[in-house]
Amino acid sequence: MAWVPESVESAAGDDDKVYLFFTETAVEFDCYNKLVVPRVARVCKGDLGGLRTLQKKWTSFLKTGINCPVLNSPLPLLIQDSYRWCDNNLSWKECIFFAIFTPQSETSDVSAVCAYNMSDISRVFSEGKYKTSVNVETSFVKWVMYSGEVPVPRPGACINNEARSMRITKSLDLPDRTLQFIKDRPLLDQAVEPVSGEPLLMRRGAAFTRIIVNQVQAADGRKYHVMFIGTEKGTILKAVNYDGEMFIIEEIHIFQTPQLINILMFSTATVL
């Protein structure tokens, strides 16, 4: 889960957002077996719920797929952890989410890291089409892209200047038509794609469990992203993104007896 200050210098008077990364059983695929897929969801920070519809529930909850394509993987990889990296000197639109994915099938042992531009994620949620369910047969429901009229204010959008011009100053003021729409159609049709359309890093062996990312300045004056990745075997991989290609430059064994790394964070302690 990550908070993004999208209200800062927003010409549209937008609200801050909270993004959530998770996995769930898909409803939109025609499969005999249940298929688990990775998702990213967004909620407005100022969401107070609805007055009648969606009382004490999120009125802005939208979700969509998030892809990290790995060649020859029979099933989608599942997201295990994410890390938001931002440059304090730049806009929130320049932030990057780094996420680790692991296979959901024993037929593969490849873990991957994918990166996503904040601007791309925001665009999908702000402009993407919705999915809707239709009854095909008596007991069969199919999910397709919604092509009908979309209510105003846009379902899932935060309270902004456009909404305020309609005397809608909080989610409790949203019309039932907008709320019923988002209640029935919280899933978007377009998935979020990674930077360059492929993983930054793939590795066989111990599954990735946690990730944190920093930016360092090298002797040549250039800045590079450095990833620290925890694994199920208790090791930490240190990888550097050099000219768009990732290199693992160090592998550290943390425990004498291999055990899964559940927590990974940067220390705030000062070394004297």
Score class of each variant (00 low, 15 high):
Val136Glu: 15
Thr138Gly: 12
Lys129Cys: 01
Glu232Ser: 12
Arg210Ile: 00
Leu172Tyr: 08
Ser165Gly: 02
Arg177Asn: 13
Ile211Arg: 02
Pro194Asp: 11
Gln215His: 08
Lys170Met: 10
Arg210Trp: 02
Leu260Asp: 03
Gly205Ser: 05
Tyr146Ile: 02
Arg154Met: 08
Val226Lys: 13
Asp173Gly: 00
Lys131Arg: 15
Arg164Lys: 15
Val144Asp: 11
Pro194Ile: 09
Ser139Gly: 09
Thr231Cys: 01
Arg185Phe: 04
Val136His: 08
Gln180Ile: 04
Ser139Lys: 14
Ser133Glu: 14
Lys223Asn: 12
Arg185Trp: 03
Arg177Val: 14
Asp176Leu: 00
Gly148Pro: 02
Arg154Cys: 06
Met227Leu: 15
Gly148Ala: 04
Lys223Trp: 11
Ala157Ser: 14
Arg204Asn: 15
Met202Trp: 03
Gln259Ser: 14
Lys233Met: 10
Ser133Trp: 09
Ala239Ile: 05
Gln217Cys: 10
Gly234Leu: 06
Gly197Arg: 06
Leu260Tyr: 01
Lys142Asn: 12
Lys142Tyr: 11
Gln215Cys: 11
Ala207Lys: 11
Tyr224Glu: 09
Pro258Asp: 10
Pro153Lys: 04
Lys238Asn: 00
Asn161Val: 02
Val136Arg: 12
Thr138Met: 13
Gln259Pro: 08
Gly205Trp: 03
Ile248Ala: 01
Ile248His: 06
Leu260Trp: 00
Ile168Ala: 02
Gly234Asn: 07
Gly156His: 07
Leu201Glu: 05
Asn135Arg: 14
Val226Gly: 11
Lys170Val: 04
Val226Arg: 15
Arg222Ser: 13
Trp143Gly: 01
Asp243Ala: 13
Pro151Trp: 01
Val216Cys: 09
Asp220Leu: 04
Ile182His: 03
Tyr242Phe: 13
Pro151Glu: 03
Glu232Ala: 14
Pro153Gln: 05
Ala219Gly: 06
Ser165Arg: 10
Gln190Arg: 02
Pro175Gly: 02
Ala157His: 08
Arg210His: 01
Arg177Trp: 00
Thr138Gln: 14
Gly230Tyr: 07
Ser139Leu: 13
